[in-house]
Write a protein that binds this DNA or RNA. Structure first.
Lengths: 132, 132
DNA sequence: GTCGATGCAAACAGTTTGCAACCAC
DNA sequence: GTGGTTGCAAACTGTTTGCATCGAC
C-alpha cells in the first residue's frame, strides 16, 4: 500500500497548484529551487505511484518526455496542450472513443487504448514569443 | 539532397513489403538476419531522412519507440495499431481533425499537431496468445 | 571531384533499478 | 518492528552525433 510520506505530499501539492503539465525533471528542479530538494529517482517513483493509483494524468510530450498533471475531471478525457508552457485544455473523451470503438470492433481489435493528444501553442505563449 | 544508395533502398524495400509498423532496432535485426547488415546509426539516419521526405509514416509505440511504415494513403490519417505485431488499420483523419480545429480556435491555440493513435490487440495476435 | 552516406564509438536524454539506510504506521 | 520509501550510483533503452572514410552522381 502507498504511504503518505513528506516527499509525495510535496509533489502532489506542487501539481495541485499547477494548471500545467509538468515533466519529472522540471518538478525536480522546481522543488530544488524551493529548498525542497529530493532525489530525482524519488520524483520518478512518486509520479509513477501517483499515476498508478489514478491521482495523476500522464501524457508524452512530442520529445517523448512524460508530463504529469492533476486533472480536475476524473473521467477519461483528452488534452489540448501548449508545447511551450504545458498549459492544457480538457476535452471530452466521448466522441472520439465512441468513433474508434466501432472501428475497432469492425476490424477485430480488442483492448484498444486511445492516445489522443493535441499539441499546439497557447495564446499567451504565442504572444510572448511574438510573430514568427 | 538525398541520394539513392544501396542501404536506403534496402530499408525502403523491407518496409514496402511489410504491412506492419516496424521499429528501427527491429529493422536493423531483420536486415542482419537476411545478411544485409548495416550500422544501427545508418538505419536511424535513413528512417529519419525517409520520414522527412514524407516517404514514411511514424508513430510512437506505448513504450516510446518510433515505429515506421510505408502507408498506402498519402494524406493525413490515423492508425489502429496492434501492440503485439505492429499490424495497422488506416483510419480517416478528417473527423477528428475537424473536431479539434474548432476547439483549438475557440481556446486560442495555434499550430496544433494532432497525435491520434489507437493501440490494441489484433484478431490474430489475440488468438495466438490465447485467452488471457 | 564534391558532397552526401556510412561505420564506429562515444555521448545523450529520459527513465529504471539494486541496495543499504530510513521512516510511516 | 515491518514493509514501503528514499538516496545514490550504476545500468538501460532508444536515439543522436563527431569524425574519418566511402561512394553516388
Amino acid at each position: 500500500m502507498q504511504r503518505a510520506t513528506r516527499r509525495r505530499t510535496v509533489i502532489l501539492e506542487l501539481l495541485e497548484e499547477s494548471a500545467q503539465f509538468l515533466g519529472a525533471q522540471q518538478i525536480h528542479r522546481v522543488l530544488a529551487d524551493r529548498g525542497q530538494a529530493m532525489a530525482l529517482a524519488t520524483v520518478y517513483r512518486a509520479l509513477q505511484a501517483l499515476t498508478d493509483s489514478g491521482d495523476l494524468d500522464v501524457l508524452r510530450s512530442e520529445e517523448g518526455e512524460h508530463l504529469y498533471r492533476r486533472c480536475p475531471r476524473r473521467d477519461r478525457h483528452h488534452h489540448l496542450v501548449c508545447r511551450a508552457c504545458g498549459a492544457a485544455v480538457d476535452l471530452p473523451g466521448g466522441p472520439v472513443e465512441d468513433w474508434v470503438a466501432g472501428l475497432a470492433r469492425e476490424h477485430g481489435f480488442v483492448a484498444v487504448t486511445p492516445v489522443v493528444e493535441f499539441h499546439g501553442l497557447c495564446a499567451s505563449c504565442l504572444e510572448a514569443r511574438g510573430p514568427r
